[in-house]
């Protein structure tokens, strides 16, 4: 299969604030790409432009060789699923029904047996089967985040967009969730990819095939975790002093044996 996502010269502004400048990104099947950057670097904006939650000023976004603006929202949501940073609920539903919303692009009105089973298997794969018939608004922040991830997975799209999907999770669930995602993305038969905005450098180093480092609305660095997560890049983008330990730890199932230890903030350059 050719590229899953191709972004060319993407620009986006909030009024006079130029948030994204000439962004170019390609994502191939079975690739997990992490987007790193400080708060306000444009990580979430990039994901929202791809998903048409926001309309870009210029540039093109092609998904499976189709311009996203030429797709109906239903067709777009069959190809791309999205996990927002948080979900503000007005009315609650059972967890099963929330995950079932991921099947909404595939069904007209009636739920098929396959749709139900897809939801059940997704809940089981993320260890959420005990929550299936609990109310969504009665779950903790981390549990809700896992349910929304389950909804995105049940959507069965080619590209998963995730905005800080592990921010509310405890350490064990961070690892379990990322391992589940890695497994889904690595499945050569499914040919899925993921673009994940994340703050945890070590999670990105461990699970991502490539990292995009956003700085001032531009791609500051792009490549494998080893290529991008250098002491100089981290100092320039995050203004922190970091120690990079290569091959220091064996990550079972990880794509790169790299570890970043943040030592202190850099107060003056």
């Amino acid at each position: 299969m050719s590229k899953i996502l191709e972004i060319k010269d993407l620009n986006f502004s909030w009024g006079n604030n130029h948030v994204l400048r000439d962004i170019n990104v390609n994502i191939s099947p079975n690739e997990l790409v992490a987007v790193l950057g400080v708060n306000g670097a444009g990580k979430s904006t990039l994901l929202k432009c791809i998903n048409r939650i926001l309309k870009s000023d210029s540039g093109s976004i092609n998904l499976l060789e189709q311009d996203v603006n030429g797709l109906s929202l239903i067709d777009l949501s069959k190809k791309v699923s999205y996990v927002p940073q948080s979900v503000r609920t007005s009315f609650s539903m059972d967890v099963f029904d929330v995950v079932l919303l991921g099947r909404r692009p595939h069904i007209s009105w009636r739920i098929s047996e396959d749709d139900r089973d897809k939801v059940s298997s997704t809940l089981r794969s993320l260890g959420l089967e005990d929550f299936s018939f609990r109310k969504f608004d009665q779950l903790s922040g981390g549990e809700r985040q896992r349910v929304i991830i389950a909804k995105a997975i049940a959507q069965d799209s080619s590209l998963l967009l995730m905005d800080e999907p592990t921010s509310d999770l405890d350490l064990k669930n961070q690892l379990e969730t990322m391992k589940s995602l890695r497994k889904i993305i690595s499945n050569k038969d499914a040919e899925k990819s993921a673009l994940i905005a994340i703050h945890d450098i070590n999670i990105a180093a461990r699970f991502a095939d490539r990292i995009l480092l956003l700085h001032n609305g531009k791609i500051f660095a792009s490549g494998t975790p080893r290529e991008v997560l250098t002491k100089d890049n981290i100092a320039e983008v995050f203004s922190v002093d970091a120690e990079i330990i290569d091959n220091a730890v064996f990550w079972p199932g990880g794509s790169d044996s790299l570890r970043v230890i943040i030592k202190d903030e850099i107060t003056s350059k």
């Binding site: 939650i53 927002p84 979900v87 692009p105 969504f136």
Partner: peptide
């Protein structure tokens, strides 16, 4: 009734969530 699914998405998670399910 034909907007049932759309209303489920809108009432549960707001606009961004609804867009991500094709609404």
């Amino acid at each position: 009734m034909k907007w049932s699914w759309d209303l489920n998405a809108l009432s549960l998670g707001g606009d961004d969530f609804a867009i991500s399910t094709g609404v």
